[in-house]
Design a protein around this nucleic acid. Structure first.
Length: 479
RNA sequence: CGGGGUGUAGCGCAAUUGGUAGCGCACGUGGUUUGGGACCAUGGGGUUGCAGGUUCAAGUCCUGUCACUCCGACCA
């Protein structure tokens, strides 16, 4: 036990210094490493595999909802970026520019996409001629670059990976339905795969995407009480269509502009997993996205028959699970246990000569640290149940943490008192005025995270100004 | 972009009034071990972030610069 304490000391305590804990974990678990260029990170195999799992889950759902993948160029001419006024104002300050090709100065500088609305809209204007061409339902898996001033691996890096869906519809209603449909896909993935509970809602005018009519969001609460904007879905009306001259001939023979949406989820979600589930021993990965769901740690592996049995079990489990056997003969079992706990593997199988004799093995679950002895003949079934249970339990624990860290304030006195205690979501009533939104931020540095789809009635008056309230909103400090 | 902190071996650190860089872990080799981070022996690894300056002499002092990190402002 004392040895274990020493090990834990190698990791920064999450309660004392959550930020350092986070950096510690991602480096030690080999998810990422810092790149030679400021603000950039290398996603290492173990981290990238988590992203691949998230990708395949999302991609399947996109396809089930009728979308197809395509790929658009990395570089966007300045003139295209400038076409939609609000959009360029929002993004220009953080755009990286390419000004030279080989040894020649370019006639028009090219920006590295910060997002692809402009280039995609440009192409859509060539492709859409008739109502028969609608809807257009395209997704792109890509990298984007935003020249951020401060960065943190996964949460905010200069370059990040994401998917961006871009769709066109005949009617505003259809486009809005698409926006909500995709937000629901994101919420489903977050809750049922990443085990992170989210609040679905709409962004305020101030917080919405540059150029959007409406931005919908899912907001999650991290272990330290800060909010993470986890995915967004935008309704553009016909603003971009008009700016980019996307026109088609409608059923009535008249020219019309289609209604547009875009929606995206990024590698930031991996940061969300770490900060929602991680603990003092390191990462804790939800089974559905864990690169390794089960690791087998043999004890006394030099003894006759142990490695053979381990390989036998591995082969059986490999049919249904992502499984790995740690048969390194230069590490002790104790080392391996800690190694895989740090990396967040949901289930560990411990097996040695004694177990083999009895036809059993020990299952260790990363979420609760519980150990149980099971019969080898039932191993597939037992592991399957256990993984499901861990998945469910992790969501449950995250929900409880969120509930614990969610408060209600009816006026600014109550609000400030809540924030003295610590961070978290605070639900308040809001009059809808920008001035109150600004004041809230000025006083507390918290912002309105969203106007939830499911509003509660907390009181009749705005928490900030005391005038008649329009909405209940979630507020909090954000990453 | 403002304010603070840190850069010495892969990681964590040390080096006295400036005197020519060392320890632990990790790594290589040989052996003994193996039910929660094993042990013994032995070995390799450094332009002290980078560029200047002061000095007989700079990890140490000065200037600049870069990177990382934390706290604010901006964003996924």
């Amino acid at each position: 036990m004392s040895d274990k304490k020493e090990f834990v000391k190698e990791l920064t305590s999450m309660d004392e210094d959550f930020a350092s804990w986070y950096t510690d974990i991602i480096l030690k678990a080999e998810l990422v490493d810092y790149a030679p260029v400021k603000g950039f990170m290398v996603i290492r195999p173990y981290g990238y595999e988590i992203w691949e799992n998230i990708q395949s889950i999302l991609d399947k759902k996109f396809k089930e909802t009728g979308h197809k993948n395509a790929y658009f160029p990395l570089l966007i001419p300045e003139s295209l970026l400038n076409k939609e006024k609000e959009h360029v104002e929002g993004f220009a300050p953080e755009v990286a520019w390419v000004t030279q090709g080989g040894s020649n100065e370019l006639g028009e500088k090219l920006c590295i996409r910060p997002t692809s609305e402009t280039i995609i809209s440009t192409m859509y204007s060539k492709w859409v001629k008739s109502y028969r061409d609608l809807p257009v339902l395209i997704n792109q898996w890509a990298n984007v670059v935003r020249w951020e001033k401060t960065t943190r691996p996964f949460l905010r890096t200069t370059e990040f990976l994401w998917q961006e869906g871009h769709t066109l519809h005949e009617t505003a209603k259809e486009a809005e339905e698409e926006t909500i449909k995709m937000l629901n896909v994101y919420a489903d993935v977050y809750e049922n795969y990443l085990a992170i509970p989210v609040v679905k809602g709409q962004k305020s005018e101030k917080e919405k995407f540059a150029g959007a009519v409406a931005t919908y969001t899912i907001e999650a609460l991290m272990h330290d009480g800060k909010a993470l904007q986890s995915a967004t879905s935008h309704f553009f009306g016909d603003g971009f269509a008009k700016a980019f001259n996307i026109k088609y001939q409608g059923r009535d023979g008249r020219e019309a502009y289609p209604y547009q949406t875009s929606w995206g989820m990024t590698t930031r979600s991996i940061g969300g997993i770490i900060m929602t589930h991680g603990d003092e021993r390191g990462l804790k990965l939800p089974p559905k996205v864990a690169p390794i769901q089960v690791v087998i740690v043999p004890f006394a592996q030099h003894k006759e028959g142990v490695l053979e049995k381990v390989e036998e079990i591995r082969t059986i489990l490999a049919k249904d699970f992502r499984v790995e056997a740690d048969v390194r003969d230069w590490q002790t079992p104790g080392f391996k246990c800690n190694h895989w706990e740090l990396r967040g593997v949901p289930v560990r199988i411990e097996i040695g000569p004694k177990d083999i004799e009895q036809g059993t093995c020990i299952l260790f679950r990363r979420d609760t640290f519980e150990k149980t002895t099971v019969k080898l003949e039932n191993i597939t079934e037992e592991i399957g149940k256990l993984l499901e249970d861990i998945q469910t339990n992790m969501l449950q624990m995250a929900r409880e943490n969120r509930t614990k860290k969610t408060g209600v304030a009816k006026n600014m006195d109550e609000y400030l008192k809540l924030f003295e205690k610590g961070d978290g979501f605070v639900k308040i009533m809001w009059c809808g005025e920008r001035s109150c939104e600004d004041k809230l931020k000025e006083l507390t540095s918290a912002t309105i995270r969203c106007i939830p789809f499911e509003e509660e009635h907390l009181s009749d008056t705005c928490c900030v100004c005391g005038k008649a309230a329009k909405h209940m909103v979630y507020t909090g400090k954000q990453y």
